[in-house]
């Protein structure tokens, strides 16, 4: 062996040695579980029986998972959560970042304030917001009645907030919060009621909480992205007479697209994995199970009642496949439209 080859071998061994500590943890607690989980998802393991007595039931497990109404409902809840919370958070964050990007004093002060909710723990935040949305002594109903009674002169009314199973669009359109009369939309939705009526008010309270908590985080990243945009682009645009909306549409949005792309991928993945706010704010799964996300369904199936571990593994794999598929789709759709640098 030549001396160069020897040196390369030495470097290779050293490289593996450096990877070893992290590698052991990853192998034992990440790669091995992924395989065990996959194998278990085809079996019939519960916590009450030893693992080696597992019988293979094949793909029946997955059929059972996909066919269970409760699972379908939880999947729909998770998707609804992602559909509403991700765009809302991103829009609020971008608006705040645009404001902070103006030449003002005290930018760091506001940035700190807006970022503050993000560092606090979901467990405590959920307790506080459960209180804010309380049907009897929450701030939510108080604000609602300030609008109703003091501004509009209507009689006092209460919303159930975290205990309200009706969809938000159903409440707004069909039984308006602000009006006494019934709304314009007929009670029959043509079988599309789930989609049209939107997430239940209960789920929407949780969505609002997540927007409140996460917007500051995305704002900080957007702000860094905005400050990275070359000022000369704006100057050139203003020479061409482009102002306001046009500058936003033709400079800010394209130049920000890598950041937006990164954030949308991260936030969709996080939204699909959401667990704590629903678990804390609606421990029983919300009115008519309208808040239970897939992860909470998994917890209920695997770690309560009959401890159906295999079943829960199958649920987890379905969720993984959905996340992977969505990420790939997002990559395919957006990657072409993202403009990297200049």
């Amino acid at each position: 062996m030549t001396s160069r080859g020897k040196r390369q071998l030495g470097e290779s061994l050293e490289g593996y040695a450096y990877l070893l500590p992290a590698g052991i943890i990853l192998i034992v607690f990440w790669y091995l579980p992924v395989i065990i989980s996959f194998a278990m998802s085809f079996g019939n393991v519960t916590a009450l029986m030893p693992l080696d007595e597992m019988k293979f039931v094949g793909a029946r497990q997955y059929q059972e998972v996909l066919g269970t109404a409760q699972f379908q409902q939880s999947l729909w809840n998770t998707i609804n959560y992602a559909i509403y919370s991700v765009p809302l958070t991103l829009v609020v964050a971008l608006a705040a970042a645009m404001l902070l990007n103006q030449p003002i004093k005290g930018r760091n002060f506001w940035r700190t304030i807006y970022f503050l909710p993000y560092i606090t723990t979901w467990v405590a935040i959920s307790i506080v917001f459960t209180y804010l949305f309380h049907r009897e002594y929450g701030i939510g109903n108080w604000l609602l009645n300030i609008v109703r009674v003091d501004l509009l002169g209507m009689r006092e009314a209460r919303l159930e907030w975290l205990f309200e199973p009706r969809g938000i669009w159903e409440i707004i359109l069909y039984q308006p919060i602000l009006g006494e009369k019934r709304g314009l939309v007929p009670p029959m939705w043509g079988g599309m009621d789930n989609i049209i009526s939107g997430p239940s008010l209960s789920a929407f309270c949780i969505i609002l909480t997540s927007v409140w908590r996460d917007a500051g985080y995305y704002m900080v990243i957007f702000l860094a992205g905005l400050q990275n945009i070359d000022k000369s682009l704006y100057e050139a645009a203003s020479i061409d007479g482009a102002t306001g909306w046009k500058r936003f549409r033709h400079i800010t949005i394209p130049m920000l697209s890598p950041v937006t792309f990164f954030l949308s991928i991260i936030s969709v993945i996080n939204a699909l994995k959401v667990f704590v706010p629903q678990f804390m704010m609606t421990p029983t799964g919300g009115p008519d199970n309208t808040t239970t996300p897939v992860t909470m369904y998994l917890y209920q199936a695997g770690f309560t009642g009959e401890w159906k571990l295999s079943y829960a593994c199958a649920v987890a794999y379905v969720l993984t496949v959905i996340i992977l598929a969505l990420t790939i789709v997002q990559n395919k759709i957006f990657a072409k439209r993202v403009e990297y640098g200049h």
Binding site: Y18, L32, P33, S37, F275, L298, C313, A316
Partner: peptide, 29 residues
């Protein structure tokens, strides 16, 4: 900073775990 056999493959293998939701690991762990 090091050159070793299979570096890129290992790097992507490690990064790949970011795609796996923690819930999959919960029960086997």
């Amino acid at each position: 900073r090091l050159e070793f056999y299979g570096k890129n493959f290992l790097f992507y293998l490690v990064l790949g775990t970011m795609m796996v939701p923690g819930q999959v690991l919960l029960i086997p762990n």
